[in-house]
Amino acid sequence: MDLRVSNYFDRSNKVNINVNNKKIEAYEGECLAVVLFVNNIKKLRLSPKKRQSRGMFCLMGSCQECVVLIDDKKVISCNVFIKDGMKIKVGDFDK
């Protein structure tokens, strides 16, 4: 089931992003954290001490839980708009 709501807005172009070497389809400009979440990629990183999986939480740039690697740089994914060909790493990247 596509969880997009399309009654109010048209999305722009369909693009592909690469998450842990898996291709995911999305629309250009969509919020990365949300796209990962609705694609059931919820485990974004591990917590520092207990090494528990963590994911998007506040969606407003406050909690810093949604950090992923984009082109090998750490960024909070709730503040990233999708571009074609983005390379994203999630999971145990924070060694």
Partner: peptide, 24 residues
């Protein structure tokens, strides 16, 4: 802390700004 537990405010942003349903 389980991924899949989010804030209610986050939920409003997903719905009203990003136009997604967070999950079925």
């Amino acid at each position: 802390t389980i991924p899949g537990v989010i804030g209610l405010a986050a939920c409003t942003v997903i719905l009203k700004a990003h136009h997604f349903i967070p999950s079925k």
